[in-house]
Write a protein that binds this DNA or RNA. Structure first.
Length: 193
DNA sequence: CTCTGGATTAGCT
DNA sequence: GCTAATCCAGAGC
């Protein structure tokens, strides 16, 4: 069980997105409670050259975290309801990130159910907005370092491997030729479209 | 300053 | 399948 450090995140978002599938996401709440899940679906977003990326039009107040150091969180709010969790990749200023789209909950299910007001495990973390609600993630966590053991969000490698498939990203109109969505084949917690 | 639409979801038809 | 819910960054004036 090793924590993923800055060198892991300092590579291309496509590589990081593919390798994050199967890793364990750990969220530590204010009261010390641990919520955990296996990452089963991710998407890579580039910087200035990726028209689908928030960073495409340059830095702004909203996307500033993407331009920071690798291994930090980029959390944004969309559709007036939902938060999405991303991990910043590459070097500072290169603005790329990996969106966490779904996880398979493994620990703290009861608390997740309360946060989501849903009882079935498959209603908890099977989408980017749902996962943030289940793990109590909002913009207060934007920009935090995720490479430390004591970080309220961090990722562990427990050696598990999955068969992975790649497809175009969901909800994106342009750049459909880039198959930058990765997910664990056959996993029940991959978001379904 | 105002307007538009989105890296979504739930609930109803 | 369709659409309402509802915030805010970015674009255009």
């Amino acid at each position: 069980m090793t924590i993923l450090d800055r060198s892991f995140y300092s590579r291309s978002p496509v590589t990081v997105a593919r390798e994050l599938v199967g890793k364990t996401l750990v969220r530590t709440l204010a009261d010390g409670q641990l919520l955990q899940g296996i990452i089963v679906e991710t998407e890579a977003y580039g910087g200035a050259k990726d028209p689908a990326s928030h960073a495409y039009r340059g830095i702004s107040k909203r996307n500033a975290a993407m331009f920071g150091k690798a291994g930090h969180a980029y959390v944004y709010f969309t559709y007036g309801f939902h938060h999405c969790l991303n991990f910043v990749t590459r070097k500072q200023g290169e603005a790329s990130a990996v969106l966490i789209r779904a996880v398979e909950p493994t620990s703290g299910l009861e608390t997740m159910s309360k946060l989501r007001n849903k009882s079935h495990p498959k209603d908890l973390t099977t989408g980017p907005g749902k996962l943030c609600q289940a793990l109590a993630i909002d913009r207060k966590l934007n920009g935090i370092d995720i490479t430390q053991q004591e970080s309220v969000i961090h990722v562990l490698d427990d050696g598990a491997t999955f068969d992975i498939k790649s497809t175009p990203r969901i909800g994106i109109r342009n750049a459909k030729d880039r198959k930058w969505r990765f997910f664990a084949i056959g996993n029940q917690f991959v978001s379904k479209r």
